[in-house]
Amino acid sequence: MKRLFPLLVVLCIAMFAYAPFLIVNAPYESTMGLVQKIFYFHVPAALTMFLSAFVASIAAAVFLFGRKPGADRIAVSAAELTVLFGLVVLITGPLWARKAWGVWWQWDARLTSTLVMWLVFQSYLLLRRYGGPGSDKLSAAVAVFGGALVPFVYWSVNMWRTVHPTTSVVPTLDASMRGPFYFCLLAFFLLYALLLAARTMLEAHRARLEALYLGLED
């Protein structure tokens, strides 16, 4: 793993460097025009964010019920990454919406659910930072709730309103667009895996440092 990590970092950088060429050469979508190309980053970022939220809640549940401190380190890293990738989604979304719908923000189902989930994990991080001692367990409960919340948010916001292009866009994509899309998706997932590993390792180092600090007076 340790030796593989730098190799994967190089691969990830190369993929992100190559992605713009693929995207530029992908066919021009006739109705949307140039802005459609945001799709190649926007959708992978959104998928990564929901993957990360899922990872965070599972890890938090393992931490709470299995009392494994290692799971908490994964949970906190995944929660931070959820917020990070959520930011990418929430920035690229309006950029596209401005051109496609003529407004920066629409209270559409997916945008709103993304925003709600993003806020849930923001509150996780806030609680962790300002909650004082013992807040690791409390924030874990927030993450578990966050995981259970996804279907409810999705369902309720969906019933409330929908203007977003549906999920069926991806499978019906033109074959020549599908290639670059999956390439970008892979790049995002790789980036996510690397960031998660690095952040979890940092957290593990910090835990070891704390243990050393506490053992200092022995």
Binding site: V116, L119, V120, Q122, S123, L126, L127, Y130, G131, V142, F145, G146, L149, V153, S156
Partner: peptide, 11 residues
């Protein structure tokens, strides 16, 4: 913290 945790989850 209570409203910050409560409101997103009860949306």
């Amino acid at each position: 913290l209570l409203p910050l945790l409560l409101y997103p989850i009860t949306i």
